[in-house]
Amino acid sequence: MTAVTAGRSTRGIVDLVFRARELSIVLALAVLVAVTAAANGNFLSAQGLKDIFLNAAILALLAVGQSFVVITRNIDLSVGSVVGLVAFTVGDVLAANQGLGVGVAIVLGIVIGCVCGLVNGLLVSFGKVPALVVTLGTLYVIQGLDHAIAHGRQINAVDLPRSVLSLGNGSVLGIPYLPLITVVVMLAVGYYLRSYASGRDFYAIGSSPEAAGLAGVPVRRRVMAAYLLSGALAGLGGVLWLARFGTVVADDAHGWELQVVSAVVVGGVAITGGVGTVYGAALGALLLTTITSALVVLKVNPFWQQAITGALLLLAISVDRVLALRVARILRRRNARHGS
């Protein structure tokens, strides 16, 4: 009997810690929105809200892909450069072949993203090289390729097919396409991760790679899949980027990997793997974007944005760590009491 009661309250603690994360993001968002709206009513205008969701859409999409990788106790720093590469190359292809439509653009973008993800995945899962080093390397390789292809050129909105641009600006029933796509992808991925056996494997790998190997989980294949998905979503993100901004240069989305990682970690996906949801990650992305918009509305120096991103990331991992230590200590004491 004691085992059960102990178990129940343990579960209570652990649950609380993780539910607290998503709740606290929602709370932080609410406070942020309230304060900003009080200072400047325009913040909550239809246009203001639409801007925030449009801006958050791509970041959240990338955060969903990144969560997959981080849940397996890995990381993909190359996503920003993949977005840049895809935005430019797809834009280049579309500008040169006017007949192509939005479908081709999306397929092409995802294929390019998958190739990048494949390289990362192969190096990490079969080369057994630290993910951070590998993807830092591929980040620069992909960025360099992007520059080499662009060669200082710029893709202009006027050269792009109308169908692609309307993907970026259009809406259905008043809801813009971009956030709609992100929400659909998020729900699908979230459902898969929660409700399919292969989805649970990703959590198992991140929770204990050794135990996963012993339990017969195909570790390499799953890690590979995580990178492929992250690459594919980065590719899709690149196409959305092109559609939203129309005008792209080789430098686009550089440095975004930090925002994406921050969003994921702030959203409660543990950097040590095994814990977190894509919903949390997407919420984290929404929070970061809202902060950026709020800074503009509150007329704070926009140069603060990156510093705040970094500080939030540090805060998130520190809080996770402190909470984990607390839980461990509580469990230690409880076990002791039951032991004697």
């Binding site: 649970r200 959590y203 198992a204 204990s208 135990a211 012993l214 095994g274």
Partner: peptide, 8 residues
């Protein structure tokens, strides 16, 4: 000491 998935 069994190897478990602590988060699951």
């Amino acid at each position: 000491e069994p190897t478990m998935f602590p988060d699951l």
